[in-house]
C-alpha cells in the first residue's frame, strides 16, 4: 500500500504533463497548421533555440529586471500606503476609491496612458508596480486591522516600537502578506509582458513575442510563453518555499 502511494506520488506529475502534451499534439494534428497551433515538438525546438541564443537570454534578463523593479516598487508603495490608511482613517477614506479605481482599470489603459508621458522602457516597470501595489496595500491594511488588540497592548508595555513590530506585529501579519505577495508576483509577470508587448521597449520578452506574432512565428510565441510561465511558476514556488520555512520555524 505504501509502495503504491509512493509510485503514485512519483508518477502523478509527469503523467499529468504527458496527458496534456498528448492533448496538445492531438489538437495540433487536428488543426493541421503549425501557423495556427504548432506541435509540442516544434515548440520545444523553438524553446531550445531561445535558450541557446545569448541575445534572447539578454532580453529575458532585461524583462526580469523590469519585473523585479516593478514588483519591489509596487510592494514598497503598497505596504507604505497600507500603514498610512490602516492607522489614519482620513487617509483610508481619501485613498480607498483610488485603490478601487486602480484595481478595476484594465492594464491596457495604464499602458496607453503611460506611453504618452513615460519612456517606453519604464512603462512595464510602472505598470507592474501599479498592479502589485493595490494587492499588497489591501492585504497589509487588512492584516494591520486584524492585529490582536490585546497582544498589541501587551506589546506597548513590554517592547520599544521596533522590537514590538518584529516580535508582536510581524509574526501575526506575515502569513497574510506573503500569501498575497505570491499572488501579486503572478500578476506582475502578466502585466510586465502585456506592457512590453504594447510599449515595445528595447530588449524585452514582450518585444520578442510581438515580433513573433508579426512574422507569424507561432512556435516562437508559444516557446516564449512557456518560458514566461515556467519562470513565473518557479518564482512563485520559491516564494511559497520561503513562506513554508517561515511557518515551520514558528
Amino acid at each position: 500500500m505504501v509502495l503504491k502511494q509512493k509510485v503514485y506520488q512519483i508518477v502523478r506529475i509527469p503523467a499529468l504533463i504527458l496527458f496534456y502534451l498528448g492533448i496538445w499534439q492531438l489538437l495540433s494534428i487536428l488543426v493541421g497548421s503549425s501557423l495556427l497551433l504548432p506541435s509540442p515538438i516544434e515548440s520545444a525546438v523553438s524553446l531550445w533555440k531561445i535558450m541557446c541564443d545569448p541575445l534572447c537570454l539578454r532580453d529575458l534578463g532585461y524583462t526580469f529586471l523590469r519585473l523585479v523593479a516593478g514588483y519591489l516598487i509596487g510592494a514598497v508603495f503598497g505596504i507604505l500606503l497600507a500603514i498610512l490608511t490602516a492607522n489614519v482613517p482620513f487617509f483610508h477614506y481619501v485613498f480607498s476609491p483610488f485603490r478601487l479605481l486602480i484595481k478595476s482599470t484594465p492594464v491596457m489603459s495604464f499602458v496607453l496612458l503611460l506611453l504618452v508621458s513615460v519612456v517606453s522602457n519604464l512603462v512595464p516597470v510602472l505598470v507592474s508596480a501599479i498592479m502589485v501595489a493595490p494587492m499588497l496595500w489591501a492585504t497589509t491594511e487588512q492584516a494591520i486591522l486584524s492585529l490582536d488588540p490585546k497582544l498589541s497592548e501587551m506589546g506597548r508595555l513590554y517592547f520599544p516600537f521596533p522590537k514590538r513590530v518584529r516580535t508582536v506585529y510581524l509574526p501575526q501579519m506575515l502569513p497574510q502578506i506573503l500569501a498575497s505577495a505570491v499572488t501579486a508576483l503572478g500578476f506582475a509577470w502578466k502585466s510586465v509582458i502585456t506592457a512590453e508587448v504594447l510599449s515595445l521597449p528595447r530588449f524585452a520578452i514582450g518585444n520578442r513575442m510581438y515580433l513573433s506574432k508579426l512574422y507569424l512565428e507561432t512556435s516562437d510565441m508559444v516557446a516564449w510563453t512557456i518560458l514566461v510561465v515556467s519562470l513565473s511558476l518557479a518564482m512563485e514556488l520559491l516564494l511559497k518555499a520561503v513562506l513554508k520555512r517561515k511557518e515551520a520555524a514558528k
Binding site: K150, M154, L157, Y158, F159, T167, P171, K250
Partner: peptide, 24 residues
C-alpha cells in the same frame, strides 16, 4: 518600571514559554 500580568495571559502563541519571558 511597571510590569503587568493581564487577566488573559496574552502570550505570543508562536514562541516558547521561555522565549515569551526572555524577550522582556
Amino acid at each position: 518600571t511597571v510590569s503587568f500580568a493581564f487577566q488573559e495571559p496574552r502570550l505570543l502563541d508562536w514562541r516558547t514559554a521561555e522565549d515569551n519571558i526572555a524577550l522582556v
